[in-house]
Amino acid sequence: MNFIHAYYFSLFAVVALLFIPYLGVRAGLEAFFGIIIPYLAFIAFLGGVINQILKWARTPVPYRVPTTCGQNKTLPWVKRTIRDKFENPESMLYVIGRMFMEIVFFRSLFRNMRMELRPWQKYPEGGKLIYWSNKWLWIGALAFHYSFLIILLRHLRLFMETSPSFVNLIESVDGFFILSTPTTYVSGIILLISAIYLLLRRMLDIKLRYISLASDYFPLFLILGIGITGILMRYFYRVDMVAVKELTLGLATFHPTIPDGIGAIFYIHLFLVSVLFAYFPFSKLMHMPGVFFSVTRNMAGNNRWVRHVNPWEYTPILFSYMEQEDLYRKQMKKAGIPLEKDIDLEE
């Protein structure tokens, strides 16, 4: 699948997903798109994620394979700094610290290095090989994931009758810029900008474009679609919020209702979110639980003092030389191969 196929396939798939709920609502299928699809998507999400976690948990990881870039614990006079202890963890405590920095600060993206040949007149070759620390992906990923998290938490107010105080705090900080009467949420803007950056990065960098597949573009388009419909619904094509909360709270309290007078844009938004949830367990988005299973991060580098046995290790079925000679003695004799136990063919 080349770039054109992958890109347009994903784009048209998301555009088609916009039309399904729109036509459905026009045909009077509000209950299907407002109740049945969200519940099914949630069940698929929960079941799919747990199933995949159990599948991963059944995979043995026989040896310690952490990627290390610090001094391992060794003889007492070899100096180790705190950095070495996190880069080459010797115990569970440091592994937890390392995982924490990975999950919360995306440390491995922070360490991203880029090798580039830059034109350089002073050098006889006319070029110079430079290594530089490329932080753009790290910044983009951090902005994307955290704004997504804040948006997710903010939506809790639709699923709880009285939202907990931390949701209200997030909302008031997020809505700091009061540009218009429904206060402008910064997270929504950052999500769109960072998602567009992540998309352009795949499209414009020729090396990345070569390795990008439809499964890379589709989630990005889907999340962009969710963000755009959400922003349209909040700031442009407004919907009756009381009716929306009646629907969402009905879902959360298992008393689903379909109130009248909610615009089609809400059902489109809800349908795209349902698609994201249902698609989640079968996609690259599984890096959310998967990061905890990354064997190059979640293991202590203790090979020097703990013996790790391969679960597949077994006593091989041996076929010794004498057994072979016993089996093929006649043939070997005919071929003139020297034997340990000689025989006489005439007999």
């Binding site: 949630f42 999400f45 747990i50 976690i53 809790l156 009758e161 907990p164 959360a252 309290t253 008393h255």
Partner: peptide, 21 residues
Amino acid sequence: GIVIFIILAALPFLYNAGKAA
């Protein structure tokens, strides 16, 4: 991990349990 995941995912349902909107 699975228990934490289920609790987080089902937080709205647990929070509203037994409450009538």
